[in-house]
């Protein structure tokens, strides 16, 4: 069963000068956790807004839970859950008042769907009389998620729920999404953090309104052509510069503790030659090994193509 279907969906701003979404097509199955991965300005928010009927597409069409995003907008509103990127709740209302309000607006009560949000709500329940403005970033996200879930939506749209949230809260948030998925809710989530991609069933890598690649995270990693090496030495900045000036280097960039390097000729093994080159340049304690590319490596490679 398809929960969300996009056919050549397009969106332009500024009288057509800026193409935010460039004829994008993909579909999301029921119960899937689907990630839109891309940096700021890639078009993620525009896609979400078109799917939640907040924006009219300039071209193409979209179907959400069986309804047309333009014609049947009333039917879609009410059956989808949406957490906008800049969503910040009512700061002057307490946790409980916020949740109550959104429950009523969506024509339900907290009690009716408590089971669904229970897992998340118990974590913020001790603070239910606290005003939302006084909550930490992570707490706010949890409350916002509760508010988006309270009417038991069939499809949940989360626009950059983890932006500006610290690593611990981010991890907790994704744990919650995994549990929600088990309850059969289709979840579309966007994020600029590449490391979060692996938790999704399928992802679309997106940049400048275009999809670079769309598949399961594993398949995207497997489709990476050629081999990738991690390398480090004592002087990492000098190493980066020296690696970049090495004649056989295709690309080289910092990646955490190591630098990741790919070579021009995908088949050839340059390890020995490179180590010698680095030794001549005066590098000490050079460590080099082949690594499995991450989503981020794939994204960088796709961007460079």
């Amino acid at each position: 069963m398809v929960a969300v279907q996009l056919n050549n969906l397009s969106k332009k701003y500024d009288k057509g000068k800026i193409v935010a979404v460039d004829s994008i097509s993909f579909s999301v199955d029921k119960g899937e956790l689907f990630g839109l991965i891309g940096p700021d300005g890639a078009g993620k928010t525009s896609i979400f807004r078109m799917l939640t009927t907040l924006l009219l597409p300039d071209g193409g069409s979209a179907v959400v839970d069986g309804y047309d995003a333009v014609k049947d907008y009333k039917a879609i509103r009410g059956r989808v859950g949406y957490m906008p990127g800049k969503f910040s709740l009512y700061q002057d209302l307490t946790v409980e008042e916020n949740l109550n309000f959104f429950a009523t607006v969506f024509g339900t009560t907290i009690r009716e769907n408590y089971e669904l949000v229970k897992d998340i709500y118990v974590q913020i329940e001790p603070f239910k009389t606290r005003r939302a403005g006084k909550l930490s970033g992570g707490m706010k996200q949890k409350l916002a998620l509760c508010c988006a879930l309270i009417h038991k939506p069939s499809v949940l749209f989360l626009d950059e729920p983890t932006t500006g949230v610290d690593a611990v809260s981010r991890k907790e948030f994704w744990e919650m999404l995994k549990r929600l998925k088990q309850q059969g809710i289709t979840i579309l989530v966007s994020t600029p953090y590449m490391d979060e991609a692996t938790i999704c069933d399928r992802i679309a890598l997106i940049q400048s309104g275009k999809i670079l690649s769309i598949d399961t995270p594993d398949a995207i990693v497997r489709s990476y052509e050629g081999s990738l090496f991690a390398i480090k030495s004592e002087g990492m900045y000098k190493l980066l510069n020296d690696l970049r000036s090495y004649e056989n280097t295709l690309s080289c960039f910092a990646f955490g503790e190591y630098h990741h390097i790919a070579f021009r000729d995908k088949m050839k093994n340059y390890s020995e030659e490179l180590l010698k080159y680095l030794e001549n340049k005066g590098h000490k304690e050079v460590e080099m090994m082949p690594v499995i590319p991450t989503i981020e490596d794939c994204f960088i490679k796709l961007l460079k193509n």
Partner: peptide, 21 residues
């Protein structure tokens, strides 16, 4: 670098490295 794409993020760190250097 929050919300910036991986390539731009790295280009930015290149600047930081250069300044620290």
């Amino acid at each position: 670098t929050s919300g910036v794409d991986p390539v731009t993020r790295r280009q930015f760190w290149d600047l930081i490295y250069a300044a620290a250097d």
